[in-house]
Design a protein around this nucleic acid. Structure first.
Length: 800
RNA sequence: GCCGACAUGGCGGAACUGGUAUACGCGCACGACUCAAAAUCGUGUGGGGAAACUCAUGUGGGUUCAAGUCCCACUGUCGGCACCA
């Protein structure tokens, strides 16, 4: 028999809404406050996904438990509402993105309500709301005025599919992260945020964070710090125009300078024109053209074969004094280091490959650990041996750098892989960049009182490569704030990752018209205590949000640098076939259908029971059935409540209080639930169910299955919510077993079990063990060499 | 290629700091109730074996009284990065 979940769940959802469950009290001391956050969803037209439910259920369970433990918990929800899908839909159908987005948000809201989530609904925000993006724009201007937002012309990633530029982080294996189109390079002037200024601190800050190691290492990789040196090589033979010509390279292995047998410049390197000799000019030009035609994807895909061209010039290796040829090759990247390298083919796989192909000299100068140096060396050996021989790599590097500095031809240098964040987009559905362009005064910040710069509605969405905002007369034509002459508005909008870089701050004071959030409120709630979300945001969102926090900290707006102290990722929920859910595979599970058939409690609890939160796990509707059976069983137990407590059930309950509490704290929902199942199995078997015992159990169940817990609580005669109760405490004395079943081993193999007090001393254990017939059989006639007794765990007899 | 994670019954998974491997759920089998079915309840359920036993946590070694857990090598799966000098 199943209870009527639809009726019960609706009833409680209405009551909670009236009671404003989940709302906070900021008069409570900060020590008792917690900020629990999940990554806000993009309100897609296809509605809530079971993957959303996973993190939402998890954070709701934790928030509900902590509230019962007396904590003041902020657990908000909102919508990352700007972005391409709504805009592309508008291009196709003509329906304005604001209409689509509003409908999608309403749908998400209702779906989340139907799951019984205790978010603070008074703080619901949308990044596409002018009240919100006013502050996104304000923050842009704050960065602009402080030199953190700037414009520059540079080769940028261009996606033909999305008709917009992309940040480096949004290019995955040479293709657009969003649509998969191959990304090409264009030379354009764009807006950037100066995230590289924070590269070192963003890297160092990771150490203090309670984040999955995987995410931290991805961020470390992305930031890509390399410590080494810059070395300047003089170029010979360009006496006519190239007097004093020099090339500076970056290397992480200055200690291998003796082995540098040629130089390579990126084809786009600025010095190529002056270095190339007339004889080689046409060949170099041809190579540069060929290289420029390769897309980022081709350049990585065609990595098998390296190619390059000789410039005709020679540089001097400052360590050996030798003439070494200067080449260009597209395995050297213009945007990293100095765009030029010294090639040490003996100690770098890429240089080795290149040297073999073009028959350039290879000179071994460094021995691997334990290798004999003699015999490896060719020319230059003597210099190297005398100078660096016998030193560790670390010391050799240092000595080399000191030598370079002394000679004035090099210095220690640290390089980062991370590039500045390209934030402008040639798209409509985003926050307009609040800048006015005046012929006389250049880029001018929109005055603060004029914010927000609202998105116009009179636009054609068709992407042309320029922002659709250019077409809007009402938007585009404006007066210069300095001279009042005709000017135009910046027509680009901001990357949606800008919107999501500060939303957690807005939640603390979501309707403030005078600031992005009142400082006292930010101080009260932030940083976020626990942040839950998908691992796909490992680099982009999490790095950008950290950058925002560091920048706002330095500008005096925040008293912390790291926004998210503890981060956990939920794993993907796969389709029943074990594949990633997708419409094309037809293996998508719709949460609404599960709710209507089995109930929100069953859906939430099943998703938590599937396995470890962070693991990917396949959906199994049979599993939902199992949870529903469990809930039905609980409901039936509620009708049998009567009589005195049973000692055995009591003990199980207290063990469960301990385990469920500890497991939930560690986000181990699956084992917490199995422990509750064990309690229920004991209740079922017991002759009577004591009211207090059952009530304690209901409190443990409440965060996981809030509707049913409330219903049964009410049926037991309570007029107030079960969530107003305090979380049960276990009695340590209650959970000690008087007698346990303990294995007795002979030579490490279990040969019997004995019932024994876990506190019993060895003599008692030995008597019991030796009395076991099967044990006796195995030790008969043998010499007892050793006895290992771990009370309550094992009794092992070692015989010879 | 580099970095990281993982590998346990028919399935999802459990196992604290090395201490009775397979908790809990699913599935399956049998039984009770029923004219019958569903639902529910009960019993059983890693493999082999009649049993005693024995084999079993991806593979092969090692440490230990004792290894899913620790060490070494390998294989496979997944995720990330990819000419970063």
């Amino acid at each position: 028999m199943s209870y009527n979940h639809q009726e019960i769940e609706k009833k409680w959802q209405a009551k909670w809404a009236a009671a404003r469950t989940g709302y906070v009290d900021e008069s409570v001391s900060r020590d008792n406050a917690l900020y629990y956050l999940i990554m806000f969803p993009y309100p897609s037209g296809s509605g809530l996904h079971v993957g959303h439910v996973e993190s939402q259920a998890a954070i709701d369970i934790l928030a509900r438990m902590e509230r019962m433990r007396g904590k003041n918990v902020l657990c908000p929800i909102g919508y990352d509402a700007f972005g391409l899908p709504a805009e592309n839909y508008a291009i196709k159908t003509g329906v304005h993105p604001s209409v689509t987005t509003k409908a999608a948000i309403e749908n998400f809201h209702n779906q989340m309500q139907s799951l019984g989530l205790s978010f603070d609904w008074s703080r619901e925000i949308s990044t596409a709301d002018p009240e919100y993006y006013k502050w996104t724009q304000w923050l842009f201007l704050l960065f602009y005025k402080n030199g953190l937002a700037y414009r520059k012309k540079s080769p940028v990633n261009w996606c033909e599919g999305c008709h917009t530029v992309l940040a480096n982080e949004q290019v995955v294996a040479g293709a657009c992260e969003r649509c998969g189109t191959v990304v090409i390079q264009k030379d354009l002037e764009q807006w950037f945020f100066n995230i590289t200024k924070y590269a070192d601190r963003l890297l160092a800050g990771l150490d203090s964070l309670d984040w999955p190691e995987k995410i931290k290492s991805m961020q470390r990789n992305w930031i890509g710090k390399s410590v080494g040196a810059e070395v300047t090589f003089g170029v010979e033979g360009r006496g006519v125009r190239g007097e004093g010509l020099a090339v500076t390279v970056f290397t992480t292995r200055p200690d291998t300078l003796f082995g540098a047998t040629y130089l390579v410049l990126a084809p786009e390197h600025a010095l190529v024109d002056s270095i190339v000799t007339d004889e080689y000019r046409s060949a170099i030009e041809a190579y540069r053209i060929a290289a420029s035609k390769k897309s980022a994807l081709e350049r990585t895909e065609l990595q098998k074969e390296k190619s390059g061209a000789f410039t005709g010039s020679f540089a001097i290796n400052p360590a050996t004094g030798e003439k070494i040829p200067v080449w260009i090759a597209d395995y050297v990247i213009t945007t990293y280091g100095t765009g030029a390298i010294m090639a040490v083919p003996a100690h770098d796989a890429r240089d080795f490959e290149f040297a073999k192909k073009y028959q350039l000299p290879i000179k071994v100068v460094v021995a691997k650990d334990g290798e004999e140096l003699e015999g490896f060396f060719e020319e230059g050996l003597a210099v190297h041996s005398d100078f660096l021989n016998g030193l560790s790599t670390k010391d050799a590097k240092q000595k080399m750098i000191a030598w370079l500095e002394e000679k004035g031809i090099g210095n220690a240098k640290t390089t980062f892989r991370i590039r500045d964040w390209l934030v402008s987009r040639q798209r409509y559905w985003g926050a307009p960049i609040p800048i006015i362009w005046c012929e006389d005064h250049g880029a001018q910040a929109v005055e603060e009182v004029q914010l927000p710069v609202e998105l116009p509605t009179d636009v054609d969405f068709k992407p042309t490569g320029e922002s659709p905002l250019v077409d809007s007369k009402t938007f585009h034509d404006v007066k210069c704030p300095v001279c009042g002459k005709d000017a135009r508005r910046e027509s680009d909008t901001m990357d949606t990752f800008v919107d999501s870089s500060w939303y957690y701050l807005r939640y603390t004071d979501p309707h403030n018209p005078n600031a992005f959030a009142d400082k006292s409120k930010v101080d009260y709630w932030c940083p976020v205590d626990l942040y839950l979300g998908g691992a796909e945001h490992a680099v982009m969102h999490l790095l950008y949000a950290r950058f925002f926090a560091y920048a706002l900290h330095d500008l005096g707006y925040l008293n912390f640098e790291e926004p998210f102290m503890k981060l956990r990722n939920q794993g993907l929920i796969l389709g029943p076939d074990g594949d990633k859910m997708s419409k094309s595979k037809g293996n998508v599970v719709n949460p609404d259908e599960v709710v209507s058939e089995y109930g929100a409690d069953a859906l939430r609890m099943y998703e938590m029971f599937m396995g470890p939160l962070e693991d990917a796990k396949p959906w199994d509707t049979k599993g939902v059935v199992g949870i529903r059976r469990f809930l039905d069983k609980v409901e039936r137990l509620g009708e049998r409540v009567q009589g005195a407590p049973d000692a055995g059930v009591q003990r199980t309950l207290h063990k469960a209080i301990k385990k469920v509490t500890a497991d939930l704290e560690e986000l181990k929902f699956n084992t917490a639930i199995s422990q509750l199942m064990i309690v229920v199995n004991e209740f079922s078997a017991a002759t009577s169910i004591n009211k207090e015992t059952f009530e304690s159990f209901l409190k443990l169940l409440a965060p996981l299955a809030p509707h049913l817990a409330e219903e049964l609580w009410e049926k037991l005669g309570h007029a107030t919510s079960i969530f107003a109760e305090s979380w049960p405490m276990f009695d340590a004395a209650m959970i000690v077993d008087d007698v346990v079943e303990m294995g007795v081993q002979v030579n490490g193999k279990v040969r019997g079990t004995i019932s024994i007090a876990p506190t019993a001393d060895e003599a008692i254990a030995k008597d019991l063990a030796m009395a076991e017939p099967n044990v006796v059989k195995w030790i008969e006639g043998k010499e007892i060499a050793k006895i290992i007794y771990v009370p309550g765990k094992i009794f092992n007899i070692v015989v010879r």
